[in-house]
Design a protein around this nucleic acid. Structure first.
Lengths: 146, 146
DNA sequence: CCATGTTAGATGCGATTGCATGAATAAATA
DNA sequence: TATTTATTCATGCAATCGCATCTAACATGG
């Protein structure tokens, strides 16, 4: 079963790739201009913060961030080297570590948010009504695996 | 003027990044599995083909593909090395070349389309009705710079 | 316990990306 | 025209990515 996509589907595909790339690049550029690290750092810090005291194993981060295993491994390396994340041994699985955000990491994440929020507003919020944004989120949500 | 984004805008942002990444990665993976080069090659060949006999300068490709200048320079290098694109001197501007698709490039692009189309259908078309796809394309279209 | 298979994570290596800069030409201006 | 500025493209270098593979630790079946 491998039907061809409708014209509407192809249009949506093209629009998704273009808009995704364009908006993402613009937001990343704003963050960089403000002197901040890439979005992935923010995402990782947010995920880890949301996991509370215990922290997360790299494999958990991998699943939440939709990143390849080796990319998580190296992202965590960089975050640890920069002092934003701490590793401690995982008591239940000696292969893994438990990752938690350090105070410096929490601080970075908090300082990034205003710039990040402004970029989202500028490149996305300002171009859609709330109703449109909600509808967009709904449509994009149905593209998730399932 | 730097208001904070609404919750709806933030939701749309998150959904856009996640869905974009997820669907794009899935389509790229399908293409690679089928033994084809990355999507950027297809896009470039398509743009060049659409430009007819004359071809395009690298800078034109850059604008159409939303790529950084050095990425275009290197993408073209690879396409030329692989025999899919030809350079000839641009008569009106000695700095530039005019890029055209070779027969091999045309052939590659044609062979890629079925796999590409199937991937779009699988990862996007099959998950949205035509009406939804049209609406999605419309909403994403309003995110373009203007 | 041992053997086998599976999962978590790290890493060497080559390809690609991003940044900064260079070289050549074109365009604008004095 | 001579000078300055802007545009087009290429590239050295460092950082990052992707792939393949490796080690270590769990899990399962005997």
């Amino acid at each position: 079963m491998n039907g061809k996509p409708s014209d509407a589907a192809v249009s949506a595909w093209v629009a998704l790739v273009r808009a995704g790339q364009s908006v993402l690049a613009a937001v990343e550029a704003d963050l960089k201009t403000a002197g901040f690290p890439p979005l992935a750092w923010y995402d990782a810090l947010l995920e880890l913060r949301g996991a509370g005291e215990t922290g997360l194993r790299p494999v958990d981060l991998e699943r939440r961030m939709l990143l390849a295993q080796y990319n998580v491994s190296r992202l965590v390396d960089r975050l640890v080297r920069a002092g934003h994340v701490a590793r401690r041994p995982c008591p239940e699985d000696a292969r893994a570590s438990l990752l938690t955000v350090t105070p410096a990491g929490r601080d970075l994440q908090k300082r990034m948010w205003p710039a990040y929020a402004a970029a989202i507003e500028r490149h996305l919020g300002a171009r859609l009504s709330d109703g449109e944004a909600t509808e967009l989120a709904r449509l994009l949500g149905s593209l998730r695996k399932g």
